[in-house]
Design a protein around this nucleic acid. Structure first.
Lengths: 146, 146
DNA sequence: TTGGAAGTTTAGCATTTGCTAAATTATTTG
DNA sequence: CAAATAATTTAGCAAATGCTAAACTTCCAA
């Protein structure tokens, strides 16, 4: 090591944040898919791969592959060539996501950004907001006409 | 298609947000690495793979591989077995990241979360905050003792 | 009831991002 | 200065996430 400075302890603390971000990313995609499946079921009675692909902006085959992973993860159920259903774990995740998403979006609106920006930014932000920060956002909303 | 509902136009709009998130993710890693290289150079005079690996919580070989990509992207310069230097593009990215990062972290603190949460959440959030939202955060800070 | 359009799946590929183990180079020290 | 220690690189692997093209089902309509 070129410069013998203290490290180790502080570095380990620091690295924890990055590890959390990396872990978030794996969960993130599952959450987005599951949330959208829930939306489709509510809006039109069933969720189909094609609709998912269209809304997420990915290819059909990508959705299919992801569905297999989600099934293995116990979040959805699907028979070949049939519509997609959420398991109870899936519904729980979807509803958690929706709640968080809605709150972040409302918060951004209350902060004064445009509707469009709130919609886009909340999509990226929602997965990285801890329970504590979420609570602080809720408190802010309560104070500022949520 | 099972239920003939309007789609297409609204779906394309919707999918844009997800596409932005996916695009953000590719940039995100580069930004984290570059920002940390800048920190190391400022703190201790040079940036070494080992220190990066320690702080980011990844294996050494992972850093090396990423360095090659960053070099191809024109963000860093490095001779074999030597320290890492930022190009001017690299410095620009690092400074952008630092500014955004610091602002988001201060904003979270002003919102009332603990120091630790602000540190961790800002790490994940900073990459998904648009210029407009950033400006709104700055305005909030100006009003609320930033 | 059957033929074609629409939807789904499979196969095969690429990239990113991580890992461990082994080989190589630099540095420090006895 | 040579041996030991530390740092770096290479090689080879794996998983996640994306793609296109081709094959297969399903379903509606003539």
């Amino acid at each position: 090591m070129a410069f013998a400075t203290k490290k180790g302890a502080s570095a380990k603390l620091r690295s924890a944040a990055f590890k959390r971000v990396r872990a978030d990313h794996s969960a993130e995609l599952a959450e987005d898919y599951v949330e959208m499946i829930a939306d489709l079921i509510d809006e039109r009675g069933e969720a189909r791969c094609t609709d998912l692909a269209l809304r997420l902006g990915v290819a059909n085959a990508t959705v299919v592959k992801t569905m297999r992973r989600l099934q293995v993860a116990g979040l959805i159920n699907q028979e070949p060539y049939r519509a997609i259903f959420l398991t109870s774990d899936g519904w729980k995740m979807a509803e958690d996501g929706r709640r968080r998403h809605a709150l972040v979006e409302k918060f951004l609106l209350a902060l004064g950004v445009t509707r469009e920006t709130a919609r886009i930014d909340s999509e990226g932000i929602e997965h990285h907001v801890s329970a504590e920060t979420l609570k602080a956002m809720a408190k802010f909303l309560a104070r500022n006409g949520g």
